[in-house]
Amino acid sequence: MIQIHCPYCGETLPELEFAYAGEAHIVRPESPSEQTDEEWAAFLFLRDNVKGPHFERWRHAHGCGRFFNAVRNTITDRFYITYKAGEPRPDLAKLLEESK
């Protein structure tokens, strides 16, 4: 069971309190009606699914209820960082450097 740091509660807690919420930084387009079918399908379904550092969302479902973002290594399941929704995508190169 992995452990997750909730950036809102400021605590590291067991995975059981959290719900995974898919890839992060996929923004719902401002004007959906102007989207082509391809663009809308990409928004709905296409995912990076990377092996390695993965930008993803979690929800502290049994805690504060907030959605937040994270960078986690999908090979080791270790988190590099979690950060609040709306904050910019962290510099991955820097994160990897720091984690060494």
Partner: peptide
Amino acid sequence: QYVSYSQRGGLP
């Protein structure tokens, strides 16, 4: 529930 290639899986 999460994307992973670790092949570990959890106890719960």
